[in-house]
């Protein structure tokens, strides 16, 4: 009975949807001609058609109260208004929150981090360049020092050599002077020795001749000796 009743109501409502609300009464009148049980149903329907609010309450959703109950909910235009309104509100709020607060903040975080990383890298690069410069300067200094040391050694060596050469020259000059003096003395001695040779030769010849021939004038001996010496000197 109850099932039959609701079925009748549904049918009558379908009819109401097709026609207009005012004509619902006609449907009820038509139903009045039916059997006694159906008449009861029609009366129920009559009250329902008159007070549509009851039907809405009864069916839980107002949308179901008017549109055919079988309408597929995602296509039910009765709900579109609310959905559009709430979508606009919520999406608008979301867009505002995102564009004003959330995204700038995340963007800032990322930028700060990127800047920091870049800054650190630049600092590291700067420090490395500084290190390179220091190493270069050190090597330059080292090379300079080495060159300087070499120069000093060279000049010292030159000085020593010059000194040595000077001294050697002095010593050699001294030596040669001494040698010359010695040679002169030898020459002198020789010359003086040679000048005595005449005398010795005359004496020797005088004594020889006196031994052999007796006494001879010294004058003739001397001239003979000097003649021989002269001859010898000319001969060689």
């Amino acid at each position: 009975m109850a099932g039959e009743l609701s079925e009748t109501i549904t049918l009558a409502q379908a009819e109401t949807d097709l026609t207009h609300e005012g004509e619902g009464g006609d449907a009820a009148t038509e139903a009045d001609h039916g059997a006694a049980t159906e008449q009861g149903a029609a009366t129920d329907h009559g009250t329902e058609a008159a007070g549509h609010e009851d039907a809405a309450l009864h069916e839980g959703t107002e949308a179901g109260g008017h549109a055919a109950p079988a309408v597929f909910p995602p296509f039910n235009p009765a709900t579109f208004g609310s959905q559009i309104l709430w979508l606009a509100l919520t999406f608008g709020v979301l867009y505002l929150l995102m564009s004003r607060f959330a995204l700038p903040r995340i963007g800032e975080i990322l930028e700060v981090r990127r800047d920091r990383v870049e800054g650190d890298l630049a600092e590291a690069d700067r420090l490395r360049q500084k290190t390179d410069q220091a190493i270069e300067a050190y090597e330059q200094d080292l090379a300079d020092a080495r060159a300087k040391a070499h120069g000093i050694a060279e000049s010292t060596r030159d000085e020593i050599r010059k000194d040595l050469d000077g001294q050697r020259a002095k010593v050699e000059a001294d030596l040669s002077k001494k040698m010359a003096a010695a040679e002169a003395r030898i020459q002198e001695t020789k010359t003086s020795a040679m000048s005595h040779v005449d005398e010795i030769a005359s004496d020797t010849a005088t004594s020889l001749v006196s031994q052999l021939l007796g006494t001879v004038p010294a004058k003739s001996v001397n001239s003979a000796v000097s003649a021989v010496i002269k001859e010898t000197q000319n001969g060689n």
């Binding site: 609010e53 709900t79 309104l85 709430w86 999406f91 979301l94 929150l97």
Partner: peptide, 25 residues
């Protein structure tokens, strides 16, 4: 009359839209 015009209501759909925005934000 019933069904004419645009009905404005806070629905389960609206609730979840609000929740979605709240969760994201």
């Amino acid at each position: 009359t019933e069904g004419s015009g645009v009905e404005i209501a806070f629905t389960n759909s609206a609730l979840f839209m609000v929740l979605t925005v709240l969760v994201i934000a």
